[in-house]
Structures are given as C-alpha cells and as structure tokens.
Design a protein around this nucleic acid. Structure first.
Lengths: 128, 128
DNA sequence: GAACACTACATGCAGGCGCATCTAATGCAA
DNA sequence: TTGCATTAGATGCGCCTGCATGTAGTGTTC
C-alpha cells in the first residue's frame, strides 16, 4: 500500500478538478450563460436522448439530490428543460429537454470540449 | 486529439473528486472537527515545517485568496494556527502552526490517509 | 517627498452545495 | 381498508466559495 502514491493521485485530482471547474465556470458562464452543473445535466439528457427521471440523473451527475433538484429548477426557469409528472409513479418527475435546451447544449458543447482538451490533453491514461 | 479520452478523464476526475471530498468532509469533520480545506492548510504547513506566507499557501492549495484568508481565520479562531505580521513586508502575514494545531493534524492524518487509500488504491498510475 | 501604480490580505456579497426535513405518493401488512 | 414504513422530490438552513472591492503598506518616478 503505497501511501505516497495515493496522496500524489489525490493532489493530481484536486489540481485538475480545480483548474477544469474554474475554466468551465468562466467559459460556459460567459459564453453561454450556463454553469458546469447545468451543462452536465443537459449533456446527460442529450446523451440518453430521452426524458429522464430526476433519480436517474442523480446517479450520473455528482450532486446531491437536493442540488440536482435546484439545477433542474434553474434549467426549467431558463426554459431549457421542462418537468413533467411520471404517470407510473406519481411521486416521480421526468425531465425533458426543450428545443432551446438542445440548441444551447449544442452551442456550449464545443466550448466544454475545448476547455477539457486544453486541460486533459496531456493527462495520463486511465489504466495501469 | 482524442475527444473521448479527455471527456472520460474529466468524468473520472469528477467522480473521484466528489467521492473523496465527500468522504473527507464526513470523516475529518466528524472525527476531528476539521474541513478538508482546514486540514490541507495544516498539512502544507507541517510539510514545510515552518511558518508560511498566506501567498505561499495560496500557491499550494486550490483555493482563491479570499477563501484561503477565511480558512486561516477559522483555524486561528480554533487556535490551531496563529497569524503574525511579516516584518520584511508589513502587508504580509505569516501563518504559524500551534502545538494544538500540530496535534490535531497528527490525529487527523491517519484518517485522511485511510480515506484516500480507500478511494485511490486502485487508481491508474499518473504517467502515460 | 508627493503622487501614483501595485501588491498583500481582508471583507461584503451573492450563489451553489449538502444535510436535515417536509410533503405527497407508494406499497406492504394486518 | 387502515396503518405505517418507505421512497421521490422540494425546500429551509447554514456553510463555503469566488468575485469584486476595500484597506494598508510598498516602491517607483518625477
């Protein structure tokens, strides 16, 4: 159990996370009016290409259920998604991307990719 | 330029960061009354084994200068560090760890290492 | 040495997060 | 059906963060 290794890895993750998060916040915010969480949620929906339950999103984005609930509320307020009740389980909520949501996501995607490439192009591979 | 690679790496960093941060917050908080940032600052000082300028700390922890200023304020309030003016440059502030600070850091260190080991033991190596 | 640009750190402020909790719907058991 | 534990999602709350700005000290130029 190499203690130095895990500490180095942690510092690496910390550094990359801080750098990427900060850059995403700035670029996505200034250019497209989206926060990283907002973009991530849109991205997940577009990727699945269907309406998703809040719970499903919760498994995919690294946010608490409450934080996710608010992200969806913000997105709905901006008319980028719409919320709908789930008929099968009336406690559930479906999140559905709107046309404007798709457009904004499509616009923001290259920005996000550019930021990530800038930061992770020289990253080590993910397999030992 | 492999776009999928950078996106995968980003998701990996996001996942590990969320998991580790959450676990550290819980473990360090519950067992030692320290937040991750507080621990990190103590750790940096112990590692250098001398008093440090705020600015030096700023280069090492991934926090804005204002956030760092507040972390130091919290640590000072908890009597884990003390602030002192820098004679050479009277704008500057030295941060000095106290005996209690050393003790708390020493107590918390195994907890932090355990959490990181739990999460990063199976991590990929950092070199391509 | 007076004026001014710059740097180090502190602080007001607004926003996002997690935790605890609330409400409503579900489902299982008696 | 009634009663109760459980689950999905929303919300109150306090904390931490970054940005913008304030304050005080430095040093440079004239």
């Amino acid at each position: 159990m190499d203690e130095q290794f895990v500490v180095d890895t942690w510092h690496y993750v910390l550094a990359k996370h801080a750098k990427a998060m900060c850059a995403l916040e700035r670029e996505l915010g200034d250019r497209h009016g989206l926060g990283p969480s907002e973009f991530e949620v849109l991205d997940r929906i577009v990727h699945h290409d269907r309406k998703l339950r809040i719970q499903e999103l919760c498994d995919e984005v690294h946010l608490s259920q409450s934080a996710l609930s608010r992200v969806v509320a913000r997105l709905e307020k901006a008319a980028l998604v719409s919320r709908g009740v789930c008929d099968a389980d009336r406690r559930g909520v479906f999140v559905c991307i709107t046309d404007e949501g798709r457009t904004r996501h499509a616009e923001a995607l290259p920005t996000q990719r550019a930021v990530l490439t800038e930061i992770f192009a020289d990253a080590p591979a993910l397999t030992r």
